[in-house]
Design a binder for these strands. Structure first.
Length: 225
DNA sequence: GCGACAG
DNA sequence: ATCTTGTCGC
């Protein structure tokens, strides 16, 4: 079965596509050693008619910027909980097309398999890019969990319908935890390990912060000039 | 039928 | 996501 499909779908069609694509997701393979890491993020204007997408690629360990690309595009799909990728993925894929480097792994702003149909934006992007991806969200979409301990590194399983779909991970002491889940070609332990390895004093992984700042930079300059 | 609901 | 500065606390 092909993972190719159009993006201009109705919500019902989009859900059907997700249900089928989920069968191709690999959330059990350990992540191979990585030397380059990419992070993707999206930002919006007030009305939500235009979206800005950006991807940054950094070097492991040093987080030195290797490459980055960003763009503005019309939002062709509304925000519907559970269908985020149909709104943001097209623009992000365009940004990836403008990157020369093929990163070893990609950090995505949103869920991986911690999704009602197991196909959050990280998993969806992983399939389309055929790259390892990790879902790193700031809040929960589905699943139940116990509040993790207050120290950095403390975690608790995120369980949905009896299945462990991710981890609620404290990346900074006493600060709201992150919701980490495998996107594609990566297992949960690898995902949690990478998020901790790329997080320092702030809640978000360094590359994710870089992508966030960059995409907002693009949005700001789009307003003025 | 009543909540919940990534960004 | 976005509207928004300073301020409180570790």
């Amino acid at each position: 079965m092909s993972i190719q499909h159009p993006w201009d779908l109705t919500p019902a069609e989009a859900r059907a596509v997700q249900a089928e694509l989920a069968g191709s997701v690999d959330a059990t393979s350990p992540l191979p050693a990585w030397r380059t890491l990419a992070a993707a993020d999206v930002s919006f204007d007030r009305g939500g008619t235009v979206l800005f997408a950006a991807v940054v690629v950094v070097e492991a360990g040093s987080f030195r910027l290797i490459e980055r690309a960003g763009l503005a595009a019309p939002a062709r799909f509304p925000y519907v909980p559970g269908l985020l990728s149909f709104r943001e993925a097209p623009a992000l894929l365009e940004a990836f097309d403008r990157i020369k480097t093929r990163p070893d792994v990609v950090l995505c702003d949103g869920q991986g398999i911690a999704h009602p149909r197991r196909l959050g934006i990280a998993s969806h992007l992983g399939l389309r890019l055929d790259l390892p991806t990790i879902g790193c969200a700031k809040s929960r979409l589905c699943g139940k969990y116990d509040e993790p301990g207050a120290d950095r590194g403390d975690r608790s399983p995120l369980v949905d319908k009896g299945e462990v779909v991710g981890a609620v991970l404290r990346t900074r002491a006493k600060v709201a935890p992150l919701f980490v889940s495998p996107g594609h070609r990566c297992d949960l332990e690898s995902a949690v390990g990478l998020v901790l390895d790329t997080t320092r004093k702030l809640r978000l992984p360094i590359p994710a912060r870089m992508a966030h700042e960059y995409v907002n930079e693009i949005r700001r300059e789009a307003k003025s000039g």
